[in-house]
Design a protein around this nucleic acid. Structure first.
Lengths: 204, 204
DNA sequence: CATAAAAACAGAATTGACTCAATTTTAGAA
DNA sequence: TTCTAAAATTGAGTCAATTCTGTTTTTATG
């Protein structure tokens, strides 16, 4: 059961994603018709719906790639954080933010976020929630690491702190993608300012 | 220019909102067809689009009512906060959360949030952002009040703190409406736990 | 090699949000 | 009252996502 059929399946998956990614970039998510994606990928409309439940799930596959890359990059910071609480947080969150517009435009992010709240039980919705959790977990891991090193007080509730930091960053990021003219540098500065309060509270 | 025409206009607005609210509740946002709303409100489909730009804006009108009510209720807490930082925050955020499912079901909230990120420049998108800002501002006002009373340190950045508290609550609320089985009591407890870190940092 | 069952495909048909040209209603002037 | 321009309403038509059903391709079996 892993011969021609499996090969064709993987190939079609790839062709659909590539066609969709190109079209989303060029014409925006709304502008990209399923019919066009199908033509570009050289499959029929019906086939696309055999591979993905709906248009949003196609976008979801692209988002997922992006976030996994970010998580990977974050590993390095957690393993070897800057020797200062504020810088450590800023470096990790900085990686998330700087990578964020690599494959995805703001418009695509808006769509992805919208779908994940609209249809939280769809494959994409569930995957997106899992990605959020993975990011929160990575921030929590960084805090644990800083506690182990002795840069953060041991009596701090690391779980709650991780959630607080992630939730704040995420909300700021949502507002960032909602405004086309918003700049990454300003976003990072605003988050640094907010985190300063926390850093003052938790640093040894 | 404020005779029959204005009266009819107000009446049609009301009928459309009432019909839509009832249908959104009964059949969910997606389940409610514009055609059905129109029939129920005894107007034509075209008329609905003369009053609202799109389906989302109808929902937006309902959300707006809800949030304004909440802001009103919040006034009381800001004017006369509990004599303890943790309780003061919990009371204000508690009002927001407890009121939230009064007119709107979780499904309606999901839609509203989705639309506001998807179309941030639509009338609804802008209104929603303004409501978020108003809530943030109210939290900031509470903190300023607590500083004035002498319960919160004067050297705390009230603006940044207000944003942090609101963003965290809002993100938690988003996760809350995404899971149908999530309970209000647990949401409030989780937020209290997160805020404990902040309270420890800012209380005099 | 046949061949039957399973899996995948194609594209026509359906559905529902939204638009638009034609018609009706209202306000105010003569 | 009668008339006209402006405002509002109407519902049939358009458009794009999604579904459905019959057909084709692949696999496994004798």
């Amino acid at each position: 059961m892993s011969g021609l059929r499996a090969r064709q399946k993987a190939d079609r998956h790839r062709r659909i994603i590539e066609a969709a990614a190109a079209l989303f970039r060029d014409t925006g998510y709304e502008g990209a018709k399923i019919e066009t994606i199908a033509a570009q990928a050289e499959v029929s409309v019906g086939t696309i719906y055999n591979y993905y439940q709906n248009k949003g799930d196609i976008l979801g596959a692209i988002v997922s790639m992006e976030v996994h890359e970010v998580l990977n990059a974050g590993q390095g910071v957690v393993a070897n954080p800057p020797a200062n609480v504020g810088d450590a947080l800023d470096t990790l969150l900085g990686i998330y933010i700087e990578h964020s517009l690599h494959y995805l435009s703001k418009g695509m992010w808006r769509q992805a976020m919208a779908i994940s709240t609209q249809l939280p039980d769809s494959p994409f919705g569930q995957a997106y929630t899992a990605l959020d959790r993975a990011l929160t977990e990575q921030i929590r891991a960084l805090i644990a690491r800083l506690q182990a090193i002795g840069l953060v007080r041991r009596d701090i509730d690391g779980q709650a702190l991780g959630e607080l930091v992630f939730n704040n960053m995420n909300m700021m990021f949502i507002e960032f993608v909602k405004r086309d003219e918003a700049r990454i540098a300003e976003l990072r500065a605003a988050i640094r300012r907010q985190n300063r309060i926390l850093v003052a509270a938790i640093a040894v």
